[in-house]
Amino acid sequence: MTASLAEVRWPITTARLTLRRLVEQDLEATWSYRRLPEVSEWITAAPEDFETYKTQFLESGKIDRDIAVEIETAQGPRLIGTVMLYVKDAWGQREVVEQAKSVEAELGWSFNPQFTGQGYATEAVSEVLRICFEDLKLRRVVAECFTANVPSFNLMERVGMRRESHQKASGLHRSGQWLDGYSYAILKDEWAQRRRP
């Protein structure tokens, strides 16, 4: 059976956050910060207008993989970021390939810079790791970024992921430059060990 976000009981609350499935009506809120230069510098696509953003987002299937992160304000809930959780197959030799299906996830994220430096991203990604390992029963979670995206790899390290590789000139940035990248991962056993008192 394929692990799916549909199997999780939403919404999920943490000490300060509510995590829920992203819906199409959230796209304007995500566009409001994803179009900012300090965010669009690192995300996969940086369209110039909302209609293009909406079309690309819906066609990519991200609406089915993204988790909305909200805080409670005096005016009610406010979306401050999203965490992508993409369940995928691990590599396996032909004789055991079925056992490698839907056993790992790739994470990605974007947060409104107005809310950085307050631990919200760490809290959200930590909870998504719990979802991966406890609710979805996955065995491994990975994440990647350009080496110049210091806040992103710092977040990976804060939540217990370890750097597995440093790839030289591995990704083409929209600036036209080939940039170095980092790959991070955490296994279920490693995550469980960190949670023990």
Rank of each mutant, 00 (worst) to 15 (best):
E127L: 10
Y182W: 02
D64V: 04
E144A: 13
V150K: 15
E157T: 14
D64K: 11
A100Q: 02
A90M: 13
Y86I: 00
P113S: 12
P37W: 03
L136P: 05
L17I: 08
E70Y: 10
A90R: 11
T55Q: 15
E24Y: 02
E98R: 00
E127Q: 15
W10E: 07
T116V: 06
R140T: 02
I80S: 13
L172Q: 14
M161W: 01
Q75M: 07
W31G: 15
R140W: 00
V142S: 11
E106K: 01
A3Y: 01
D64G: 11
S110N: 14
A90E: 05
W42R: 06
V128W: 01
F57P: 00
R163I: 06
R158E: 12
W178L: 14
K188I: 03
R139V: 15
A124Q: 03
E164V: 02
K88A: 15
D64E: 13
V142E: 05
R196H: 12
C145M: 05
R94V: 08
L138F: 10
E123T: 11
E7Q: 15
I80W: 07
D49V: 09
P11L: 04
R65K: 15
E164I: 02
T44F: 07
E127Y: 08
A121V: 07
E95V: 01
G81A: 06
V150P: 12
R65D: 15
N154V: 08
W42A: 11
F146D: 15
E38A: 09
T116C: 11
M156E: 09
R194T: 00
W191V: 10
Y120Q: 08
S170W: 05
S175Y: 03
A90P: 06
W109A: 14
R194H: 03
S175L: 05
Q167A: 12
F153K: 10
F50K: 05
S175M: 03
A105W: 01
T73R: 11
S170C: 04
H173M: 06
A6P: 04
P11C: 09
A45N: 13
F57Y: 15
Y182K: 06
S110H: 11
Y53G: 12
A46E: 01
V39S: 13
D89K: 04
V96R: 07
R130L: 06
G61I: 03
D66W: 02
Q56P: 00
M84P: 12
D180S: 10
M84R: 13
S32L: 04
A29T: 01
R158A: 14
Q114F: 02
V97M: 08
S60Q: 03
S40D: 02
R65N: 15
E98P: 00
K88F: 10
Y53T: 03
T73M: 04
Q56S: 06
R139D: 07
E106Y: 01
I131E: 10
L36R: 14
T2W: 08
K168Y: 13
L79N: 12
R195M: 05
W91N: 09
I43W: 02
L22G: 09
F133G: 11
W178Y: 15
D49K: 05
